[in-house]
Nucleic acid binder design. Structure first.
Length: 207
DNA sequence: CAGTAACG
DNA sequence: AAAG
């Protein structure tokens, strides 16, 4: 249906649009509550990389496909490693996509990454999707995280920015394949997550 | 297969 | 090599 013109980004970092505090506190709480139901249906798991190293984040997914990683590689699967189908993407999360993606398509995958104390994610590209035409939309909830932005290939200078609860990133166009990662979490810095931790929710078209 | 260096 |  008709949408108002999307709000302008607060900052653009190498083509990645940052919308600071796109969700206010009540909206963050609504999404968090929905994520608790997602995690109840599809528990967080601790993936391994292709080379057998355990990642420090725990993750799960919602939607038609979820991202999984093990020695067989990175890929999207229709079911959780424990066998159950992924639950549907909560409407409160779909609204963010519809407000900011600029895409006609709906997201097929909603990856939920939980960063506990000391968790990080190395520089990587989101390149496991067959269709890279739609952007990746990324919501931060809970503790602050230091986001690092690299280049379209490995190497070269990088830039970092602290992300806060409610911030949304849109990685589209030429920036869709930019290397990025999370260097550090300020554990316990947010009041949204009383027991600490950062949650990142990423929406993608996969097929 | 694992360990190390270096990357950022 | 490396969502390490």
């Amino acid at each position: 249906m008709d949408q108002s013109e999307p709000r302008a980004a607060d900052q653009v970092i190498r083509g990645i649009a940052l919308y600071r505090e796109f969700l206010d506190l009540p909206a963050q709480q609504e999404v968090l509550q929905a994520l608790r139901r997602v995690i109840a249906a599809a528990p967080l798991f601790h993936p391994q990389t292709q080379r057998g190293k355990q990642m420090t984040v725990r993750m799960t997914s919602a939607g038609k496909f979820g991202w999984v990683s093990d020695r067989r590689g990175y890929r999207y699967e229709p079911c959780h490693p424990a066998g159950m189908p992924w639950p549907p993407i909560p409407p409160a999360i779909l609204r963010i996509w519809n407000a900011l993606s600029g895409s006609d398509r709906q997201p097929e995958s909603c990856l939920v990454n939980f960063y506990g104390e000391g968790a990080r994610m190395g520089l990587h590209q989101d390149r496991d999707e067959k269709d890279m035409g739609a952007p990746v939309v990324s919501l931060s909830l809970g503790d602050e995280g230091l986001f690092r932005v690299g280049n379209l290939e490995r190497g070269g200078p990088t830039q970092s920015v602290w992300l806060h609860s409610g911030d949304v990133l849109v990685m589209g166009g030429a920036a869709r394949l930019t290397y990025h990662g999370i260097d550090r979490i300020r554990f316990g810095s947010s009041r949204l997550t009383p027991r600490g931790g950062r949650i990142n929710v990423t929406l993608r078209v996969v097929t």
